[in-house]
Design a protein around this nucleic acid. Structure first.
Lengths: 215, 215
DNA sequence: TACTGTGAAGGCCTTCACAGCG
DNA sequence: CGCTGTGAAGGCCTTCACAGTA
């Protein structure tokens, strides 16, 4: 899943950022367990990543540890949040209110990333008007206004394969800068826009293939 | 076709397989449009991938094109299906029948990959017994029997973060060889088992970070 | 002519190993 | 002494460029 290395000047590899997010989650779990210090080895233990990798990843952004002691869980957690940008809140729109979109609206896990799913949209009239988990599903035509009012620059795209391309273009046209694309179409990002393609079909097929190789 | 490198670990990079799946999808769309021949450049046009990359990827598995002419859409499509393993049907279980699991049960897109979602499971008694899209949600305790009867070796894990690890261990213990993990926990695969972690939270946080770098 | 297949080159990321510091 | 931070080395993947073929 490596969408477009070209759009992002490769100062920090995309995969480093992805791992940073994993480190942060691990730190938060440690914090919840009352652990206050951690070494690089302890942090990567459940992740299948080498300790050197973690230290190298962090070194892209600065120095965070104490030699001989490891890292302060609280301090590093705060630093990573800042680096990743989730120290501040972001408003997010869910686009597409079918089964998958509805499931996302019911999901409570984004809150801990400081993400607020605050609006939902669909083109189909029979989908609009419903309220799911306190969020009203609106017509797509309302997107520009609602997005502007709420400062929405991030969208999760959960529409059918056929509508994905047009929907993405519409969102980008109205100010969306980051799209998490869950439809089974590979979207390419225009300049200034970030797209992450999460393609379950592709991933499943890849799994099947790996399965075959092993046998 | 060709003697395939049977040693899985580093023979064919994982990302090559992922791209193969994308190529196959493109071919199928061409087929549906009635196109019968395609060049490497035409195949990668919507994908942000270079033509050389596609040719190199294919060369891991053999020779499929005609010099000067390109590829036969039908033939290459059939070859890729065979390579990926989706020329044969696979039975798949959905584990976890919450909002996300239910959405997966309603999704019709896996059929074209020859994947049959044929069973669903959940530990919560209030979730079991329901029938979603013709598929009964059973208790997890029935998994071993049902999996054996239906030859299920692939599972999609759509459970809560807290249950993910235990559920995965249970599945593996009862014959599952490939897991598509949709929960926000990074699972590591024991030997002989393939795991693909699709982590929406991680992906969203990475997007937010890229967003911040741009501005 | 037009396009594939592929060795070779190049670049990026990971791994290594150790200097440096508490 | 223990562990971090980091240049250097190594390896893997992508890109290049062209030989080869219908």
């Amino acid at each position: 899943m490596k969408p477009q290395p070209k759009t992002w000047p490769p100062a920090v590899p995309l995969e480093v950022l992805r791992r940073m997010s994993l480190y942060l989650r691990g730190l938060n779990q440690m914090k919840a367990r009352g652990v206050s210090r951690a070494t690089s080895a302890a942090l990567v233990a459940p992740l299948n990543i080498s300790a050197a990798q973690l230290r190298k990843d962090l070194s892209y952004f600065g120095k965070f540890g104490k030699c001989g002691l490891g890292y302060s869980v609280d301090a590093l957690s705060a630093d990573l949040k800042k680096i990743l940008g989730t120290n501040k809140a972001w408003n997010v729109a869910v686009v597409g209110a079918g089964a998958l979109g509805s499931a996302l609206l019911k999901y409570h896990g984004f809150a801990e990333l400081n993400l607020r799913v605050c609006a939902a949209f669909d083109t189909a009239p029979e989908k609009t008007g419903r309220v799911i988990n306190g969020i009203m599903v609106r017509s797509m035509s309302e997107f520009p206004e609602v997005a502007a009012q709420n400062g929405i620059h991030v969208a999760i795209l959960a529409v059918s394969r056929e509508s994905a391309e047009a929907a993405a273009a519409f969102l980008i046209q109205h100010g969306v800068k980051a799209i998490l694309n869950l439809s089974s179409v590979h979207l390419t990002a225009p300049a200034g826009v970030c797209v992450s393609n999460m393609d379950m079909s592709c991933e499943l097929e890849t799994l099947i293939c790996r399965l075959g190789f092993r046998s």
